Simulated assay, not measured.
Amino acid sequence: MPERKPAGFFRGEKEQPTLITEAAVSLEQQHHNRVRRYTIIMAFRIPCLVLSAVAYSIWGNWVISMLIIGVSIPLPWIAVLGANDRPPRSKDEPSRWDGRRNQKALDSRPHKAIDG
């Protein structure tokens, strides 16, 4: 008997099930996405350093090499900020400051002072 590949209820349906819940992405998946983002950004740093050496050897101009190295300097900072960022907030997620928008910071009516 031939083996059957797992599939959905309908022919041509993808192997992954359709997401029908409003549950957030799991913490493991968020961590995996952040590690992948960090790795991709940091992977650009080594080619920048190699490219600066190649540019110097081809043109003999140290300014171009320094510009390429200068582009690679903020990459670790950008990678860390991107890796530590949380997933974007959904439109359905309530804002924590909604209740405070209608409150007045100071009372504007005049008050009587009592001198003692």
Rank of each mutant, 00 (worst) to 15 (best):
M66W: 07
W62M: 13
G60I: 07
L75T: 01
A105P: 00
D115K: 06
R96A: 09
I68R: 01
V25H: 02
P94A: 05
A79F: 05
S108P: 00
A113G: 11
R11G: 03
A55S: 12
P2M: 14
V71L: 14
I41Y: 04
F44Q: 04
V25K: 12
P110W: 06
E3Y: 09
S26F: 03
D115W: 04
S90C: 03
H111F: 10
D92F: 01
S95W: 15
A55H: 06
E13P: 05
P2A: 14
Q103V: 15
Y56I: 02
I46W: 15
I73W: 02
F9S: 06
I114K: 12
D85F: 08
L106G: 07
N84K: 11
I20L: 14
N33K: 15
W77E: 03
G8P: 01
Y38F: 13
W62L: 10
V25R: 11
R101A: 06
G70K: 12
P74D: 14
I69T: 01
R37Y: 04
Y38M: 10
D98T: 13
G70S: 12
W97I: 03
G82S: 11
I20A: 12
W77N: 07
R37S: 05
A79G: 06
I64W: 08
G8F: 09
H31Q: 11
R89L: 13
A83S: 12
Y56P: 07
A113E: 05
A113W: 08
A55V: 07
H32Q: 14
F10T: 07
N84R: 07
N33C: 04
V54Y: 13
R100H: 10
Q29A: 14
R34D: 07
E93F: 03
L27P: 03
P17R: 14
A55G: 15
N61M: 12
P76E: 02
E15P: 07
D85S: 00
G116S: 08
E28C: 11
